[in-house]
Nucleic acid binder design. Structure first.
Lengths: 214, 214
DNA sequence: CTAGCTTTGTGAAGATTTTCACAAGCACCA
DNA sequence: TGGTGCTTGTGAAAATCTTCACAAAGCTAG
């Protein structure tokens, strides 16, 4: 099987979101053109993306919304529940622990962990904050495959090494630093400062042609 | 001037982060090889990225750390202060308002806004939560060019239209929905559920070759 | 001053991703 | 049953991004 590009997976995820909307509203079929318009891409792109995984559409008609939704869920591995642990009970950790979008998609937070003894034991939504000491065994006991890292950059790599050793298989990293993992562990990083810097660049370089800011 | 790829800008941002570290530690020069290693890319990529903007290095020696740091700051438009407003005083808004990384990089939060009358007036870090009604005039008075959107998907496009009309020039969107802006406004979206789904996909498709999870 | 070692800057090659364009397939209608 | 209109699926072309490979340039030592 050919390798699937990261950008493709991202778009599949977006298609799924909008297909679910259409499905809820009872729409039977959707054309690549309609999906493309909703998702801000092109019809050809939609068709190419989907065609990696099979022929889901009917020519002349479009794609069956409900059926394609199910197919995409399966492709993305969302037909099951994923157990997730959150490491770091700061503001970002709080936002993530409460995020409805996760649960809606089948991601269940089974534990929140923090270094700080003052926070350990406090209830937080459904979960109670636990000590980092129990992190490794909890990963193994719960068989949680995914960890979300919401801790400062300094400790990040050390914590990663720890949870990788405990058997974690995927990490979503919010710490603003490069971290490295063995090849069998998947890693995605989100860096908010970096995103803002991208905007700063865009503003600065449009500004040269446009009107210089004060 | 040739168009700069988004991925290039992202890497520049990363180079800057690590160069600052090196600079703090007093290191004089850094080779493309060293930078690449720190940032998880290749030496050729580093050189190519930098060469878009000029010749900053010395052959046989590498790049002068302090000088290149300054160049990158200028390229990214970080030599000035950027005023930022945050729309949405939920958990995500809270995390962003408190995020040190923003201020460190020259992004100053000049206002936090929320729809909910119960929240309006409360102090939040340095800022006080204000009503959405004052949003438009505040953008104009403060000349804040950047908005961070941390609100539910439903209202997102409406709020965007509002702040675009008020003269915002860049938006960092955390609402899990596609939004559209006129061409003179820059837009970046961060979607945490989508990132997790990317991990789910990776796990699912590695799992077929590896050992299926329970 | 020259030889030797190192590292940049960059055209060209290679790889990947997106767009184009059109034949093939399906539904509907008369 | 055959014609018409629409939309998919997909090779091929175009565009974009990354890697390669090497000449040019600087530094050090003798």
């Amino acid at each position: 099987m050919k390798r699937i590009a990261d950008s493709t997976v991202r778009r599949l995820s977006m298609y799924l979101r909008y297909l679910e909307d259409l499905d809820t509203r009872g729409q039977q079929t959707a054309s690549s053109d309609e999906l493309a318009h909703l998702c801000g891409t092109t019809p050809a792109q939609v068709r190419k993306d989907l065609s990696f995984f099979g022929s889901f559409g009917k020519r002349g008609l479009g794609y069956p919304v409900h059926e394609l939704t199910a197919h995409l869920r399966e492709i993305l591995g969302l037909q099951r529940e994923w157990k997730v642990i959150i490491v770091g009970a700061g503001k970002i950790g709080a936002a993530l622990a409460n995020y409805r979008g996760f649960r809606q998609r089948g991601f269940t937070v089974v534990g929140v962990y923090d270094h700080d003894p003052a926070k350990v034991g406090k209830a937080w939504g459904d979960a109670t904050i636990r000590s980092m000491d129990s992190l490794a065994q909890d990963i193994q006991r719960e068989e949680a495959p995914i960890a979300v890292l919401a801790i400062p950059a300094e400790n990040a790599q050390a914590v990663v090494d720890q949870i990788v050793a405990a058997g974690i298989r995927a990490i979503l990293n919010f710490a603003p630093t490069q971290i490295s993992v063995p090849p069998h562990v998947s890693l995605k990083s989100v860096n908010m400062a970096m995103e803002l810097e991208g905007l700063s660049f865009a503003l600065t370089n449009a500004g040269l042609l446009d009107q210089g800011a004060a």
